[in-house]
Design a binder for these strands. Sequence first.
DNA 1: GAGTGGTCTAGACCACTGT
DNA 2: CAGTGGTCTAGACCACTCC
Lengths: 233, 233
Amino acid sequence: MTSSAIKSWQDVQGEVLHRIQTRFWKPGDLIPNEVDLAEEFGCARATVNRALRAVAEQGLIDRRRKAGTRVAVNPVRRATLKVPIIRQEIEETGREYSYRLIHSETVIPPMQVQTKMSTADDHSLLHLRSVHLGDGRPHAYEDRWINTRAVKNTETIDFSVQNSNEWLVQNAPMTHGEITFSASIASHYEANFLEIEEGKPLFQLERVTWDEETALSCVTLLFGPDYRMRMQI
Amino acid sequence: MTSSAIKSWQDVQGEVLHRIQTRFWKPGDLIPNEVDLAEEFGCARATVNRALRAVAEQGLIDRRRKAGTRVAVNPVRRATLKVPIIRQEIEETGREYSYRLIHSETVIPPMQVQTKMSTADDHSLLHLRSVHLGDGRPHAYEDRWINTRAVKNTETIDFSVQNSNEWLVQNAPMTHGEITFSASIASHYEANFLEIEEGKPLFQLERVTWDEETALSCVTLLFGPDYRMRMQI
DNA sequence: GAGTGGTCTAGACCACTGT
DNA sequence: CAGTGGTCTAGACCACTCC
């Protein structure tokens, strides 16, 4: 059955993946329990557990106490995305990064933003609009709202010099967040800053970050028509 | 130091995250080694290891043998995306899923597709175009190329009845893949099938799946202007 | 060379959950 | 209730890599 020696959890994982791929274990099948597999592979149960946990994290098997481990019927593979840091994204392609603040003011946000950040309707936020550039050419347009009640010392920072995202990452620890992708059309205003034609398609990324129950920041990034976001499965 | 008892690896993880968030351990800092932490927390080293491994997977710390564990300077948090299965996406919103095949033929693909799939320029592929619907209304337009040399038995399947993605998932095990997101504009042709106006923005997902060195399938999905793809961090 | 994380083991107990 | 995965432990050895 097993041609080569199985010792490490990676070996076990490999063998399990192989059995799923070759449909030796078919979607929906119950596979042997950890004790039996450990015996078959000649390793400790903890090693099998480590391997199966890794496979489960990929979404290829479903594990439940008492019910056992089944090959997933719909392999909902989870893809991992390295949330892009624009500076790195630009510098990795050999271009020089720069950043230009367009506008900064403290104002009560539109209701749409209030809703997304769950802030009160009389609660002013810091509103920053800026452009990220690579070799001086626009890469992304950024529209950001910062909750200055939750993020301290914002008034001491000059965001025309200091990239707001990088400052926040360092100074406003978040517990969780949500990212939304969508497509939109470049308005005259947006097209102007991105130096593209009005009406072109834009890739839109929106991110709201939270510290427990408090929204810290809501940012919308707009990328031009040639932008691609890639992930591996 | 530690107010409440620390026993499980989740507790250790929680305490570690807390120390990073409160900047007790600052970005770039070297944190104590596993043995010391285990002693401090009163648990086994394996438990600390489990916790730190989980934190490292989130990208918040960097771990290297001999060099030790450091708080990440750029918390490149990894977001996990459940790669959408359209049927589920539709049924979760309480709508009835259906699927309509528009066209099917075996033909040599355009060079762009040949490049993406690394196929020879005289190599025909199965080309399917279809629409996914929710309660009879278009949800996504699909344009798919299938490598029939790598995926067997495609000729025996009637893809006007059998959703090609679901069939492939069950019958053509992949080892890895790449997903690309972008934005485009609805052509007259696409707008027709999505029942929207020409020129509207479309959210575009492109996925190439591989079995080792062989491309199995290349699919492009187009979603209408209201579509949002969400992920958690 | 030596320090640190990476992993394996054998055994134990716990927690969930299907029957 | 009983079977299965989830986790913890104490100890050991290994593998990498910085100094």
